[in-house]
């Protein structure tokens, strides 16, 4: 198994290099680089200034040259300085990662708690009214645009009922500290967590339902029923446990993604997370940050798939990793 993990990591490094090359090429060829975004609206900027800035930000280098410089930095453990924030990319990532995590983690737990029972329910009652209702609601959640759903929640819970704050990470007017600050911040995260949860439930619920249905059609389920076991025992002991195998792998694979942030939701709720920063960077042509954050996310994805593959081996004894 260790051999397998090491081999996967080695392949992962090669994949990361490929990913970073493609991304670098794409950003550099995309219209609107950092210096032109910065200077285009200021009529007092002279061409010499633009040239000097291009030189300072390494935008005069050719694409392979620029990539080589960036990659050399990465090998030394230096992701470079974000153009926009003028701070080391690693520092920006690590400071913003946690707030994104604390937004994504409760949503992750809630998704599990809601989606799995719903999935089982609609699988056991396939083609019933409950099944259709659950599937419809889940699909609606999946297909709602986050900004739209966020606006609805803000309208109902912040403006209408006044239960939760509209946006932001804390109440600016108050100088809370310690536990009160934590509570205040938690209150501010309720609406964004609701958005992420509802948006995420659909996929997980569908996945759970499909796998459950597959298991329910297995011969050993028929055997269990034929032995005269109660329906709940059949469903929860025999069927559900076998359904868990694919579910655990997908859930394990989702964990690293909790750190990657959500671009739109963070922006709407004024949360200074990793996703919104990535969006700003993308708009502003902040090459080091985009490179750093995509590398980070690509690495997370690779780790995610590795974790889920390893977990697969753990929960299913029939799978051997070589």
């Amino acid at each position: 198994m260790w051999q397998y993990i090491v081999r996967r990591i080695c392949i992962g490094v090669v994949v990361l290099m490929g990913v970073s090359m493609i991304i670098y090429g794409l950003i550099r060829t995309a219209p609107g680089d950092y210096v032109s975004t910065l200077t285009s609206s200021n009529p007092e900027v002279t061409q010499e200034m633009v040239d000097r800035l291009n030189e300072l930000y390494g935008l005069n280098d050719s694409i392979p040259e620029g990539y080589a410089k960036w990659a050399a930095g990465v090998f030394r453990g230096d992701l470079g300085d974000s153009f926009i924030e003028q701070k080391p990319v690693a520092e920006v990532l690590s400071s913003k990662m946690w707030i994104s995590f604390w937004m994504a983690f409760p949503a992750y737990i809630l998704q599990i708690l809601i989606a799995i029972p719903l999935g089982i329910l609609s699988a056991t009652k396939q083609y019933s009214k409950i099944d259709y209702a659950v599937t419809t609601i889940a699909l609606m959640g999946m297909s709602l645009p986050s900004f739209f759903f966020a606006a609805i929640l803000q309208r109902i819970f912040a403006q209408g009922l006044g239960w939760f704050p509209l946006s932001g990470m804390k109440t600016a007017r108050m100088d809370y500290e310690g536990f009160a600050l934590m509570l205040d911040m938690a209150k501010h995260l309720v609406l964004p967590v609701m958005v992420l949860t509802v948006l995420g439930i659909g996929g997980l619920m569908r996945y759970c339902r499909t796998n459950m249905l597959e298991v329910l059609n297995e011969d050993y389920i028929r055997t269990a029923r034929a032995k005269g076991l109660s329906e709940s025992k059949v469903v929860y002991k025999h069927a559900f446990r076998n359904t868990l195998i694919p579910i655990v792998t997908i859930l394990g694979g989702m964990i690293p993604g909790l750190f990657s942030g959500s671009m739109i939701t963070e922006g709407i709720f004024g949360i200074d997370g990793i996703g919104n920063t990535a969006l700003t960077a993308l708009r502003g042509g902040d090459i080091p940050y985009i490179m750093g954050s995509t590398l980070f996310m690509a690495a997370l994805t690779l780790v995610g798939t590795l974790v889920s593959d390893v977990l697969y081996g753990v929960v299913d004894p029939r799978v051997r990793l070589k």
């Binding site: 006044g162 509209l166 946006s167 932001g168 600016a172 709720f269």
Partner: peptide, 22 residues
């Protein structure tokens, strides 16, 4: 005594004043 600046999304600027956030 104190002045604070709260980062607010452009889509919520009026709502932020209505809800007394800013």
């Amino acid at each position: 005594e104190k002045l604070k600046y709260q980062v607010t999304d452009t889509s919520n600027l009026l709502e932020a004043v209505i809800t007394e956030q800013v």
